[in-house]
Design a protein around this nucleic acid. Sequence first.
DNA 1: AAGGGATGCAACCGCACAACA
DNA 2: ATGTTGTGCGGTTGCATCCCT
Length: 233
Amino acid sequence: MMKETMMRKGPWTEEEDVQLAFYVDLFGDRRWDFIAKVSGLNRTGKSCRLRWVNYLHPGLKRGKMAPHEERLVLDLHNKWGNRWSRIARKLPGRTDNEIKNYWRTHMRKKAQERKKSNNNNTNTPVSPSFSSSSSSCNSSSSSSSTMAFGKTVSENKGRSFYDTGGMKHHNSETLEESSKVYSMDEIWKDIEDDTSTDPLWDFCPPAPVGYPNSMIWSIHDEELIMHQINNSF
DNA sequence: AAGGGATGCAACCGCACAACA
DNA sequence: ATGTTGTGCGGTTGCATCCCT
């Protein structure tokens, strides 16, 4: 039987962050349900984990993606599709969530640029705003296809507009050419063509995920520690 | 200066999978 | 072999801030 207690949701407060960090420091970044319980945070283990992984983890970089990171994301997405966590492992200090958000943002940007360039492709070229040149964009064969980005695309049953599917769809015949209302793959391919020629990303570091995995402790230890904690608060 | 749309990011949800009893 | 629990992942949403008119 699970007793239904109202779990807290929504943004984390600074106090909660401090508290979570304290307990993760004590118990390691595993056993999230346990941490959630003993910390007294009225959060689910899941929520605690997410907060730690995406925000509190000491190894995290913050701020804008560097150009080489952008390249890496593009290239790895081209290879692996929406395997965000996998991609994140190749970008130390970046989280899957961050990369996912980045991708979404830039897909949106790109989509809009494309839309613009389609609208007035007869004369004024669009100024590229993303990382490097995108001069070859308008060489794509999709110049006549209907662009259905933004809100309308959600009508496109189940596929979010930034979900190109990556690898998933490259070999798939489910995406019939004829049925494409819009083709992110095509668009992104164009972008890729511009960027992937650059071997810059080759430096690709050996994926140190950065989690301290040496936290070995027994249940017995847990209980002892718990006891101490309870006494100290 | 104000209002509205665009953007970026944090957080939640649902599902899948692995470990364990 | 099976059920339960914990964790991880990908997709989606909500909200605060920024920017433009």
